[in-house]
Each structure stands twice: as C-alpha cells, then as structure tokens.
Amino acid sequence: MAAGLPGGRELGALVGWEREAVLAVSTSGSTGSPKVVLLSAAALIASAEATHARLGGAGTWLLALPTTHIAGVQVLVRSVVAGTEPGVMDLAAGFRASGFATAARTVLATPGPHYTALVPTQLARLVATEGPGLAAIRAFDAVLIGGAATPPSLLHRAREAGVNVVTTYGMSETAGGCVYDGHPLDGVKIRLDTRGRVEIAGPTLALGYQGGEPFGEWFRTGDLGRITTGGTLEITGRADDVIISGGENVSPQEVERVLAAQPGVHEVCVVGVPDDEWGQAVVAAVVPVDPDDRPDPDVLRQAVHDAVGRFAMPKRVVFLGQLPTRGPGKVDRAAVARSFG
C-alpha cells in the first residue's frame, strides 16, 4: 500500500493495525456506500495457497477481470505465489468471447494446470454459442465463478458444455472467494448467527475497514444462508434485500431462482418498490433469451405462485436488454428499481 490511500489518507496517518496492510481495495458498493478494505500480505497469500490446494496445485492463470476489484487482484497474487506469468486479457473494448480465446491461447500453451476467474455475465457470453470462446474455456482445468450469484441454469449449461466451473463465495473482506462449491477453503470457518447471517473466520480475513475498528475473529457478512447436513453452505439472499409486501417477507433471491428456471429467461432481478397498498410491491426485471420471443409474464407470475406462494408473485414484470451492473458483475438493484419509475 503506497502513500496515497482511497479517501485521501496518507500512510503516516495510519494507526497500529492498519500499518500491516499491503493492499487497500474498495468494495463494490452494490448494497450501500463503498468501503475501503485493508488486507495483509498474510491474508492474500493464505487465500492463494488455499485456492491452489483446493484446485489441485499451482498453475498458470488468465486475468480476465479488472484489478480494481479483489477477484482480479487475486489472480495476480496467485500467479506470484505460483511463480508463473499470468496471461492478461485486454478489456479496453469490453469482454468478448473472441478476445478471451486469443488471450487464453498463450496461457493454455504453458505446462501444468490452467485456471481463470470470471463473473457470471462473462461465463454466459462464452457458453452462449459454439465457437473459439467456448473451446478455450473448456480447456481450463478450473474456472472460478464469483462476484455475483450464478443462475443454476447457467451453471447447468456450462457444465453440460464441458466447462469445469467452480462456484466461489467471498468478498473483499475475506480476500476474495473463501468458500468453493459450498465448502470452505482449508483454514476457513463458517457459521450462521441467530438471524441466519453468514459469519466467516480464518487466515484470509482482512484486517478491517480504513478508518474503522479492526475486525475480530469473526466477520459478519450481510448474506443470509443455510448449512446443509452435508456441511454445504447455501446462500439464500441478502439480509437487507428482504421485501415486506402486505406484511409478508419475500426473499427476492427465492423468486429469482424460480423465474430463472423458466423457459426463455436469460437473467432476472427481483426488487421491491414503494406501493401505497402493499407497502412494497414485488417486481421483476427479466432479460429474455430471445428479445423477439419473450416469455409470457402471466406464466412467469404463475410459476412463482406455484413454487413460493401468491404473496411473492411479481406485481409487474418488465423486459430489459440487460441488467444494470456495478462492481465485478454485481447487479445494481437500485438501478433496477428505478427502471420501474
């Protein structure tokens, strides 16, 4: 961490524990004001080593994410720890399957395992059609997917296409992904508090937020989850995303899972908007697979009725060309809500 920190603080102004930091990274701010997370070298290295241990050994990485976010930074850290030269995709013109294939060519020519990390939107573009992008992604030994919830239909499609997808859960505060395919990396511990919020401890935990107090042993996330009898962590939503409509608590993620499984739905985001009658009305923004052949809104609403209940049915469904995002592929829920006027 150099003399200039986000927020204008200088290195000399840092206190005790903050001086251990080697990296200051901003959160995406997708659910509130961005914060600056301070990470130690020990946390970054622990994350990289645990990742390699889980995937089957150190290898060569392709950087296809911006390094302004922890997921991109960690590709570089893992490369340093592995002693390999990462491939770097040119993202100046945006993410394209052809550009990914070109950047992957050099990486895949090196000996040993080959890895990359993507957000769901990037994976969706690569598996959309047969071509060099899909051929390239199939050749990687593991493709880490994180930064946002991945629709089950996309995971199924990618795995059916021969892509070795590994889902990751984590955040800047945990030095990136620390739970792979629902199971913590070595040394990482997870638990749920009395409200069902996910708490995380272990060597990958950040020091704390810039200008705040240091983290303790456990970091309480804003995510709700459950742990299955087999020890698998399943994220069920955000604690601050719950929609209260007509006195009923509605989990937008639960409604999204139902809608995303319907024919003709590519992506979906469910939010609550102010409503004089209901307090909050459940509404859904849907990106169709084919803009010229949209699914019937009434069919979508009925699917939610049957799977979740009448109280969770979207009062309105709008169709968008794409969902607005911020950060590393996270859906901007505030922007989605504004689309309903």
Rank of each mutant, 00 (worst) to 15 (best):
F340K: 05
G133S: 08
V270K: 01
T167V: 11
P324T: 04
G246E: 04
F311S: 04
A3K: 15
T129D: 15
R125Y: 13
Y209K: 11
P132H: 07
L65Y: 04
G99W: 00
E213S: 15
I137G: 02
D292W: 12
M313H: 05
L154Y: 03
E254Q: 11
E254C: 05
K315W: 09
I200H: 04
F311Y: 11
K315Y: 12
G170E: 00
A303Y: 07
C178K: 00
R159N: 07
Y115C: 02
G56Y: 07
I243W: 07
I145L: 11
V299W: 08
E213M: 13
Q322Y: 11
G57M: 10
A64P: 00
A42T: 06
P263K: 10
I137H: 01
A148R: 02
L91R: 02
T325V: 10
V317Y: 03
I243H: 09
G146P: 02
Y180L: 09
R54Y: 09
E267C: 12
P295E: 04
G8M: 13
A334W: 12
D240A: 10
L11G: 14
P151N: 08
S172I: 02
V80M: 10
G247D: 08
T84R: 03
Q210H: 15
T221W: 01
L14D: 03
A136Y: 00
P324Y: 02
R310P: 04
D332Q: 12
F95V: 12
A142K: 01
E256I: 03
P263N: 11
T121S: 15
V198G: 01
G59D: 02
P184N: 08
P111E: 12
A42L: 06
I200L: 12
V127S: 01
A103F: 02
P288A: 07
D332E: 13
V81P: 01
F215W: 10
L233I: 03
G29L: 13
R220S: 15
C178N: 03
L91I: 04
P111Y: 13
A206N: 07
T102Y: 11
R191H: 11
V88P: 03
L185V: 06
D298G: 14
G341M: 10
L118T: 06
P214V: 09
A175R: 00
H52F: 14
L154A: 05
D141Q: 05
I190Y: 01
K330W: 02
V268Q: 06
R157M: 07
A281F: 09
V81W: 01
P86W: 04
S28N: 08
L300S: 02
E217C: 10
A239I: 08
V119S: 06
T204W: 01
L118V: 11
M89S: 01
R197S: 10
L155N: 05
E18N: 07
E199D: 14
M171E: 02
R105P: 03
D240F: 09
A335R: 11
G162A: 05
A53E: 13
M313R: 06
I145F: 03
L185N: 01
T168N: 02
G131D: 14
G187A: 07
D298I: 11
A284G: 07
G87C: 09
V318L: 15
V88E: 06
G264C: 12
A335N: 10
T228S: 09
R96G: 15
E10T: 12
L300Y: 01
T204V: 08
D90L: 08
V299N: 09
A48W: 00
